[in-house]
Design a protein around this nucleic acid. Structure first.
Length: 389
RNA sequence: GUGACCGUAGCUCAACGGCAGAGCGUCGCCCUGUGGAGGCGAAUGUUGCGGGUUCAAAUCCCGUCGGUCACC
């Protein structure tokens, strides 16, 4: 019945390192999970993803439902075969789109204020409209589990209501209650999942201590295979609150001996701080999306620049250094900043590929160093080396 | 040498008597379970130079300098 096998091999304070074993291989934790929303880590082949050091990535159920459609994935034999990805996969339940496609979503808020919300949330689930052609799809916890069963990822997320910020405690409480009710349905729907799929329950409650503790206790009491923390850094939640949420919930979650995933984190500093508090895995679009926009990660860029620089700036036009002099990725071993600058200015496809490769390698490399530091009980040294505090 | 056309932002050009603009570039900001091969914003001008006409000139007139093309 239980699918993943999680073992903690070493701890340093509350930070911990170990492994998650699945049918499609082992993930060393703490792990960073790249995002491949539409069944592709944009611009990279499976071999190239593997060469960046990652053995797992995230695919989005919402996107698969509309394109290519679940039947197409089923016909291909599931996501692993469809994409020819032999390693571990995670799928999101579609719950994030409750936030991202709503009138409070990031796109709408910034520059599509006149566009209508593409979601309507009720106690039964979320009525979506396709972002591409407006066609409707209803997704509740049962539907999401069935969909994720067809997709066949190793690690799947319970269907939840992801909240925006700012939000009142009352409304955050309603979303949490709904998420709790849906969590039970997701567990009841387990037979819709393939036998080897593992289900993560998601803690909600926005920035409210009472709600977060309530949610952590509730989720920890249920027979999930893993636990996840949601809705923390979606839309301008204050940074101190992001980590306060971990302080409130991690002591309750750590006791379960289940892997704990932090949804949507993040920046280098946030990753280090999250690992310090016991997080086992995190996913984020930062290395991939920011890479496509010309941001390259380097340690030398420093904390104040979030460890990245914009290669499209004029100052790199004739810079013959590798993108990151300390890096051993394909891009850094073979090309210089001058060339990458040119590729971005010329909008060459290779720019996106090399930047994505480098950033993913940088993240995987950092996670490897983090794991080693925990094993050697030097995590605080690593933290100080990067964050200087 | 003669004639025609052209000189406007860093670049390519628009405006052709009525507040000097766009694209690209530059610089800045944004992106945390991807609606993103993005989005938002700012700076930059003695309209080649000098004179004239006019309430008003990048625009019309004269001169001058520079460029391109054509013809000798």
């Amino acid at each position: 019945m239980t699918k993943l096998k999680f073992s903690i091999e070493a701890t340093d304070g509350t930070a911990r390192t170990g492994s998650i074993r699945t049918e499609h291989g082992i993930i060393a934790t703490p792990a960073f999970v790249p995002v491949g929303t539409a069944a592709s880590v944009k611009s990279l082949t499976p071999d190239e993803i593997e060469n960046t050091g990652h053995r797992v990535f995230f695919v989005n159920t919402y996107h698969m439902i509309f394109r290519p459609g679940l039947e197409t994935v089923k016909h291909a034999g599931g996501l692993h075969k469809f994409m020819n990805w032999p390693h571990v996969l995670m799928t999101d339940s579609g719950g994030f789109q409750a936030f991202s496609l709503s009138e409070n979503g990031p796109r709408v808020k910034e520059n599509r204020a006149t566009e209508r919300s593409l979601v309507k949330i009720t106690d039964q689930g979320i009525a979506f409209k396709s972002a591409w052609d407006g066609s409707p799809v209803f997704l509740g916890p049962g539907e999401s589990m069935a969909a994720q069963g067809i997709l066949g990822a190793d690690l799947v997320m319970a269907f939840d209501e992801c909240t925006f910020y700012p939000i009142s405690e009352k409304r955050a409480g309603l979303a949490m209650d709904r998420t709790h009710a849906w969590a039970k349905v997701c567990l009841e729907s387990r037979n819709l999942l393939k036998s080897r799929q593992s289900l993560y329950g998601i803690i909600q409650g926005s920035v409210y201590k009472r709600l977060r503790i309530n949610s952590a206790k509730f989720m920890a009491s249920l027979p999930f295979d893993g636990l996840a923390i949601g809705s923390v850094a979606n839309s301008r939640e204050p940074r101190d609150k992001v980590f306060a949420v971990l302080d409130w919930t991690m002591p309750l979650l750590s006791e379960t001996a289940k892997p704990i995933h932090f949804l949507g984190i993040g920046e280098i500093e946030d990753i280090i701080l999250s690992v310090e508090k016991g997080i086992d895995s995190l996913d984020c679009i930062t290395p991939t999306r920011l890479g496509r926009m010309g941001w390259l990660f380097t340690k030398e860029a420093g904390l104040k620049n979030k460890f990245r620089y914009d290669i499209t700036h004029r100052q790199y036009a004739r810079d013959l250094q590798p993108p990151d002099p300390l890096c051993k990725c394909y891009a850094c071993l073979n090309f210089n900043r001058s060339y990458l600058h040119h590729l971005f200015k010329s909008r060459e496809l290779l720019a996106l590929r090399l930047a994505t490769m480098h950033n993913l390698y940088f993240f995987a490399d950092l996670m490897g160093k983090i794991r080693q530091s925990i094993r050697e009980r030097h995590f605080s040294t690593l933290k100080k080396e990067w964050l200087n505090y």
